[in-house]
């Protein structure tokens, strides 16, 4: 069967499943399991049984669509677009392209060197490196599924602003001398990959491949995350988090970021937990800051980048981005 035909059949099945999910969960929890409404246990079980399939359904769909979109982009193409862009515009483009260009932090080093060799300013390269992990389809889907489109949009908007501005600031700091010397001495051969004609069916196949790869990688984290979230949802008293992660405590934002930076999880594991925290009175700004620092800045990525960046630049990088995240946190605590 052609990939496109197969995809349309699956899309129909997806719509039906998503449409009837709430009814099915009602029947399961109240009808079949005969649980009493209003108890802690029912509340936790309902949260899990409803959220887990909902989030997984959304994830599969979006990863599939993003897989198709990404087949139109490649780091090579992104590099060509970024060459010869003036500074601020370059930062904007790099951040936007960071969202859609297929990128894994294991390729951070070759990508960094390829960009430097092409003469792309360091600050522009950093904008890309900040946006790519922070704003990803998994984060956006989970935020949309659990909090609605407003929070998802806020996350993307503030994430983009941080990537653009942090890259711009790093460029102003003239950090070229903090790049490992060997990077500048590399003269790599220019390669011409044979251009293959890509049909739409191929792109749909890319979408399926993306679903297989990503869902296989994250489904377990999502279930654990939703499990912990369900526990907090059912058992932690309302407003409990208000005292710890509420607006009134000024130190909550920087502290959340300090805890979040070394902590590493992909979006899949952290967001369902964040959902439950928010529900129990944690403020949006503090939660947003925590989430961004966990997803956007990670120790493994820094260790990888250490091969091309001197320690000073790693600290500047983390410092500038963390400052941006703290500012976003305060901003949202102030306006919500």
């Amino acid at each position: 069967m052609k990939a496109t035909t197969f995809a349309s059949i699956l899309l129909t099945a997806w719509l039906v499943a998503y449409w009837f999910l709430a009814d099915a969960v009602d029947v399961l929890v109240y009808g079949f399991l005969k649980m009493d409404e209003g108890t802690h246990l029912t509340s936790a079980v309902y949260f899990f049984v409803y959220e887990a399939p909902k989030v997984l359904l959304l994830l599969v769909l979006v990863v599939f669509l993003v897989g198709i979109v990404r087949s139109y982009f490649s780091p090579e193409r992104t590099r060509t677009i970024l060459e010869n862009k003036p500074l601020l515009l370059g930062n904007v483009f790099a951040s936007l392209l960071g969202i859609v260009t297929p990128f894994c932090s294991c390729s951070a080093v070759p990508l960094f060197i390829g960009f430097v060799e092409a003469g792309i300013p360091l600050g522009v390269t950093f904008s890309f490196l900040i946006a790519a992990p922070m704003i990803n389809e998994i984060a956006v889907v989970l935020l949309f599924g659990l909090f609605g489109w407003k929070v998802a949009l806020v996350y993307v908007g503030t994430g983009l602003s941080i990537a653009i501005l942090a890259g711009f600031v790093i460029n102003k700091l003239k950090v070229e001398r903090y790049v490992e010397d060997w990077v500048y001495s590399i003269r790599s051969q220019s390669i011409e990959l044979q251009a293959q004609t890509v049909t739409f069916a191929n792109r749909v196949q890319f979408g399926f491949d993306a679903v297989r790869d990503i869902v296989a990688k994250v489904w377990f984290y999502i279930l654990i995350g939703i499990g912990v979230g369900a526990g907090i949802h059912g058992y932690v008293p309302a407003d409990f988090m208000a005292s710890v992660m509420g607006k009134s405590s000024w130190w909550a934002v920087p502290l959340s970021v300090l805890i979040g930076v070394p902590l590493y999880s992909n979006a899949a594991g952290i967001i369902p937990i964040v959902h439950a925290l928010l529900e129990k009175g944690a403020s949006l700004g503090t939660t947003l800051a925590f989430m961004m620092s966990v997803i956007g800045l990670s120790l493994p990525e820094m260790i990888i980048l250490r091969k091309v960046l001197k320690l000073q630049l790693i600290f500047i990088f983390v410092g500038v981005v963390a400052t941006g995240i703290v500012m976003v946190g305060y901003l949202f605590n102030a306006i919500t």
């Binding site: 490649s74 090579e76 990508l111 390669i191 990959l193 091969k307």
Partner: peptide, 26 residues
């Protein structure tokens, strides 16, 4: 060795090279 890898000019790992010619990357 990362220095040898980047010398082939690829932007994404893994790369496949046959007789010193890059065939696929990423």
């Amino acid at each position: 060795d990362i220095q040898k890898i980047v010398a082939y000019g690829i932007l994404r790992t893994p790369g496949l090279v046959i007789d010193e010619k890059v065939i696929s990357s990423g």
